[in-house]
């Protein structure tokens, strides 16, 4: 045993470090439930900011919902927006500070229900911001109510017998809709349930920030996520449930990768 302990000691040396928490992520213990995807996405954003060296140029806009406290964890300047208004707040920041990096971070209720108008119009204007969209098909903070993205038949505290389309309508594929807008430059859907997915998601977030630097239009990253508490599953089973039920409805991959549309396509003739 002591041989083993010695061998571990041999390995744990600064020169052998291959992964440590980014300094852009602070030491506060996150308030999220065990296994929550928010924590992973926060970390990826922090790592991208760190690797791009833009900590001093980045302003985040946090939503209302579970990630209302995002500002506690990523060590950058933040504004906390009213429910659904993050894209408008981000627009206000970006318009007066066009050379800074501005991103909004929103859940499904914030982005796709109460803030639908702000979301659509920010993307339609082609605001040069990054929008991070956490879709876990449920309201976490308020206790597991139906979200616009809740699946048909999914049980939530306000759909105790499952989401019924006659009563509640359909799961909103807002990312597909946003990809149609000429202001969108980069629209992608990612997930963070396993190491490969996490690495892909990080690349997507990095790319979104790079698109912002090029002022090509809005960069939109959906992350299909879990909510163990809301789904009443443990974190590992939540990932399985997500793969089986969420991915068919919300397929992963890039939905758009170009640049804001050419204005001439839309110009009047006369």
């Amino acid at each position: 045993m002591s041989v083993l302990a010695d061998r571990i000691k041999e390995i744990i040396k600064p020169e052998n470090l291959v992964y440590a928490k980014s300094p852009v992520l602070n030491d506060d213990i996150m308030h999220y439930c065990p296994g929550c995807s928010h924590g992973v996405v926060h970390r990826l954003i922090a790592e991208v900011i760190d690797e791009m060296g833009i900590q001093d140029q980045t302003i985040g806009v946090s939503p209302v919902g579970c990630s209302v406290f995002a500002y506690k964890y990523i060590d950058i300047d933040w504004q906390e927006a009213a429910h659904g208004r993050a894209p408008a707040v981000a627009t206000g920041i970006k318009r007066v500070l066009p050379d800074k990096y501005v991103f909004s971070y929103q859940g499904d209720g914030d982005l796709a229900a109460i803030g639908t108008a702000e979301t659509f119009h920010a993307v339609n204007r082609g605001e040069n911001i990054v929008m991070i969209f956490i879709n876990n098909a449920i309201y976490g903070m308020t206790g597991g109510q139906m979200a616009p993205t809740t699946l048909v038949g999914q049980i939530t505290s306000t759909t105790p017998y499952g989401r019924n389309v006659d009563l509640n309508g359909y799961p909103l594929k807002i990312t597909e809709l946003l990809a149609q807008l000429p202001g969108a430059a980069y629209v992608t859907r990612q997930s963070v349930q396993n190491p490969a997915a996490v690495r892909k998601a990080k690349k997507a977030i990095r790319k979104a920030f790079e698109v912002q630097a090029l002022k090509k239009g809005t960069a939109f990253v959906e992350v299909v996520s879990t909510c163990s508490s809301g789904w009443k599953l443990n974190p590992v089973d939540s990932n399985k449930w997500m793969e089986e039920n969420m991915f068919p409805q919300y397929p992963l991959g890039d939905l758009k990768d170009s640049s804001r549309a050419d204005a001439d396509l839309y110009r009047i003739k006369g």
């Binding site: 208004r85 408008a88 627009t91 970006k94 500070l97 108008a117 702000e118 659509f120």
Partner: peptide, 23 residues
């Protein structure tokens, strides 16, 4: 900067964002 927003709700929140930058 002058911007026509999609609603008064958006307008005031744009004001919020820009005001938060000291403008």
């Amino acid at each position: 900067v002058v911007l026509q927003a999609e609603s008064e709700i958006a307008s005031i929140n744009m004001v919020y964002g820009a005001a938060g930058c000291g403008k």
